[in-house]
Computed example of a mutant assay.
Amino acid sequence: MNPSLEQLKILLAAAETGSFSAAARKIGKAQSVVSTAIANLEIDLALTLFDRSSRYPQLTQAGSRMVKEAEILLAQSERLQAVAGELAAGIESRLTLAIDDDSHLPWLGAVLEQFANRYPMVELELLFPLMEDVTELLVTGRAQLGICYQREHPQREIVTYSLTEVAMPLVVSPSHPLARKPLLREVDLQGSRQLMVTGRREGSERQRFRLSAQVWWVEGDLGVLELVKRGLGWAAIPAFLIHQPLARNEVVKLKSDFISGQALTLELQWHRARPLGLAGCWLKAALQAL
C-alpha cells in the first residue's frame, strides 16, 4: 500500500513537534488519529519510524530519512497544486502584501506605482507586521506575499526568495558616550542601553541580536532611529535609513573590534500551497526582478 499525503503530513507534524499529542494540536486532529496514522505508515513502509520506549517518541534513523523524503514529496505536491491554482486563477479582486516595517516603502514605491497602473481594479492591502508576524500572516492566509528579514528558524510551508542584503551599521548620537570611543569592545556595548526592534510576540527572533543587559524594545526601525538621535541608546539600523541622519550629523557610526559588516538578508515570501492570482504573480515577479 502506498503512503498517502495525509500520512506524510502527520509524520512531519510529529517530527517537528516532538510528540503525537503536539502534532495532533498542530493539525487539528485527535491524538488517536495521529497515532493510528503513524502506526499504519510504519506497517505500509515496513519500517519503525519512532522509538516509543521513552516518554516522548524519538525518530529512528530510518524515520529521520523518511522525514526528509516526505518533505520533498509534500513540497512537490504543494507546488503542483499552487501552479495549477495559478493557471486556473484570473485576476484577484484583493491582494495583501505584508511588509516588515513601513520604512521599506520608499524603495517599494516604484513597483507599487507600476502595479496600480497595471491592475487598477485590484484592492491592494499593505500591512506592516514585524518579524515572525509576517510569516504568521502567510501561514494563516491573511496575506499572500510577505517581505521580511531572513528568519533564524524558517517554516517549511513558506517559500523564500532572497531580494538583497541590507547593511545594519551600529549607530549612536554624537553626544552619546560610546561615540567618543575610537574602537568598541563587546563589553562596551553590553554595558550600554541597546535599542531593538520587536514584534508583539515573545520568541527567539526577538532576542536574536541582543548584546546588552539593558534593552528598550521599539516597534519599528523609524522609532528606533528617533530614540538613537535623542541619545537614548545604541542600535543596529538599516543603512538605507541613516544616509540623511549621517549627513546632518544626527547619528554617527560605531567601529567595533568584534562586529564587522553586519547585514541581514531581505526576503520575499509566499505560502508554498496557496496559489496566487494574476496580479499576485505579477507583483511577485516584479519584486524578484527588483
Rank of each mutant, 00 (worst) to 15 (best):
G220T: 07
F20T: 05
I147Y: 03
P177I: 05
A236V: 02
G191L: 07
L80M: 11
W107Q: 11
K229T: 08
S212P: 07
K26Q: 15
M66V: 05
Q288H: 12
T164A: 12
P238I: 04
W270P: 02
L278T: 07
A88V: 00
V83E: 12
R25W: 13
I91D: 11
L124K: 03
F128E: 05
V67C: 12
K255F: 09
L290F: 10
M66G: 00
V34L: 08
T164W: 07
L283G: 05
A23T: 09
L97A: 11
S4I: 09
Q58P: 01
A110R: 12
C148Y: 05
K9E: 15
L246W: 00
M196E: 03
L95P: 04
Q81N: 06
V166F: 05
H176N: 04
L41V: 11
T48K: 13
R142C: 08
T135D: 13
E165M: 11
Q31W: 02
G199F: 08
V228K: 03
S256Y: 06
I237H: 00
F115S: 06
L41T: 06
A84L: 15
G63Q: 00
A14R: 02
A213E: 15
S192T: 14
L8N: 01
A37R: 02
A84Q: 15
T96A: 07
A213Q: 15
A167C: 06
L163H: 08
L49I: 05
R248I: 00
A30C: 09
I237L: 02
K9P: 09
L227W: 06
A70T: 11
F240D: 10
A286D: 12
E157I: 10
